[in-house]
Simulated assay, not measured.
Amino acid sequence: MTPTIAATLLTITAVTAYGIACWVIPFGTCRSCKGTGHRPGRFARSRLRPCRRCRASGRRLRYGRRAYNYLAKVHRERSGGTQPTTELARLRDQITKGGLS
């Protein structure tokens, strides 16, 4: 196997693994507070303040998941919104459009 093919396969594998990780576990620990949700105060080191980056949850949305959410939003907006998935929703839409009397 040539080095170019090996590098390509390794890159594809790494991107796929990261995509699956973002799908299965969309949240990671906050790097600012190390997952505790609190940071030491500016002047009084013993006083803990809530972390502003993660809003005191200790969890942050991964970059890959954030990119996926953005692309999904763009796709929904350009395709005209979400389609009704249940039979009741389809009937309701037909009634409001005047298709059923």
Rank of each mutant, 00 (worst) to 15 (best):
F27K: 11
R55E: 14
T8F: 08
R52C: 05
M1I: 07
Y18N: 12
R92F: 05
G28L: 10
R45E: 12
Q83V: 13
T29Y: 08
A6N: 08
P26L: 03
T13P: 01
I20V: 15
E77V: 07
W23R: 10
G37Y: 00
T29S: 08
G28R: 13
R59K: 14
G58Q: 05
K73W: 15
S101W: 03
F43P: 00
P84H: 03
R47W: 07
G35P: 00
G80R: 02
T8R: 09
A72G: 04
R62D: 00
I95C: 01
C22L: 03
Y68D: 01
R55N: 15
C30I: 02
I12G: 09
A14Q: 13
R52E: 15
T13E: 12
R78L: 15
S79W: 02
G41I: 05
T4V: 09
P50Q: 14
E87S: 05
G35D: 00
R59Q: 10
G98V: 01
V74L: 13
A67Q: 11
R66E: 12
A56D: 15
C33T: 00
T16R: 14
K97V: 02
P84Q: 02
G41M: 03
I12A: 15
K73E: 12
D93V: 05
R42I: 08
P26F: 02
G35Q: 00
G99V: 10
L9P: 00
E87L: 09
C51M: 03
C54A: 06
H75K: 14
S32C: 10
C51H: 03
Y68Q: 03
T2G: 12
L61V: 09
E77Q: 14
K97P: 00
T36R: 06
T2P: 09
L88A: 12
S46R: 11
P3V: 11
S57I: 01
R47T: 15
H38M: 15
A72Q: 15
T11R: 14
D93N: 07
T82N: 08
L100W: 06
Q94A: 10
E87Q: 06
L88C: 03
T2H: 07
R60I: 15
E77F: 07
S101N: 08
P3A: 12
S101I: 06
V24Q: 13
L88Y: 06
R31W: 04
Y68P: 00
E87A: 11
L9S: 04
L71G: 03
M1N: 05
R42N: 08
R55H: 13
R90P: 01
Y18G: 06
C30S: 01
L91S: 03
E77S: 09
T16P: 01
A44P: 01
R45M: 06
K73G: 08
K34Y: 07
T82M: 08
S79L: 09
Y63I: 07
S46V: 13
A67I: 11
R90A: 09
T86I: 04
R31Y: 06
A67D: 10
P3K: 12
A21D: 14
T16K: 12
G19F: 04
T13D: 14
S32N: 13
A6W: 04
S79H: 08
K97A: 13
G81I: 04
A67N: 10
G81L: 04
R78Y: 07
A44G: 05
V74I: 14
F27T: 07
R65C: 00
